[in-house]
């Protein structure tokens, strides 16, 4: 991926109207470059989830601008018609819990996305196996999700987020259910994948264990983002 990652300018989101209106996002400005993993940190109610939903094209912002891989996708209104295809092809998601599809095996959990994008099954599965290999879980390719350990499930979820080679991945507290060692392992994998696939990764977290690993951190408070340099600790 050689694009420009994701840039957000003056993003705002207001719920409701009149006296009951709530400004969940007041001023969000961010930029995440390809190959970079940044942290998005904030207390409960600060607007993290709303921002994630806006970035994930799940809800529509009220105003602002979003540029994904040099393409303006939002400018006071959506500029792409098929948000579903946008999410499928250009945005990867990693959730707090892996949320793997319970009735698909590991390979098909990952291959489902390229299949949805119209790729032949064999090709999609080939992509999935490549990622499983890269993430060191290829031996679990035929396993069903409940047969995996928590760490394995999270790695499969990361593979699913990466499989369509999206310019940006949104990771929503991906280390929350993991112990320190596994949490750091996940962050190591995310950094490695971001570099390997030139993907911009935004990690929403308030996990103290992993915050020192980010080189750049965006704090969000009362719907406003502030950029801060992170420690970028090697681990």
């Amino acid at each position: 991926m050689t694009g420009a990652g994701i840039r957000i300018e003056g993003l705002r989101k207001r719920y409701g109207s009149g006296d009951t209106a709530v400004d969940a996002l007041k001023q969000v400005d961010m930029q995440v470059f390809p190959g970079e993993v940044v942290g998005l940190i904030g207390p409960s109610g600060s607007g993290k989830s709303t921002l994630l939903k806006c970035l994930g094209a799940v809800i529509e912002p009220t105003a602002g601008r979003m540029i994904l891989d040099d393409e303006v996708i939002y400018d006071d209104g959506w500029k792409v018609k098929d948000l579903r295809a946008l999410r499928r092809d250009s945005i990867g998601f990693i959730f707090q819990a892996p949320y793997l599809i319970s009735f698909l095996d590991v390979t098909d959990n990952i291959a489902l996305l390229p299949m949805l994008a119209g790729k032949p099954n064999a090709e999609a599965r080939g992509q999935a196996l490549d990622l499983l290999k890269a993430l060191d879980v290829e031996h679990r390719a035929k396993a069903m999700p409940p047969q995996l350990s928590g760490g394995e499930q999270q790695r499969v979820a990361i593979a699913r987020g990466l499989v369509n080679r999206p310019p940006v991945i949104l990771a929503d507290e991906p280390t929350a259910p993991l112990d320190s060692e596994r949490a750091l392992a996940v962050i190591r994998i995310l950094n490695e994948m971001a570099r390997r696939y030139e993907t911009a990764i935004i990690v929403v977290t308030h996990d103290e264990k992993i915050i020192p690993t980010f080189k750049r951190i965006y704090h969000i408070r009362d719907g406003v983002t502030y950029e801060e340099a992170g420690q970028g600790l090697e681990f």
Partner: peptide, 12 residues
Amino acid sequence: REIAVLKLIGTR
């Protein structure tokens, strides 16, 4: 939850 995930990742 799985349906929500499927919709989020672009399932029609």
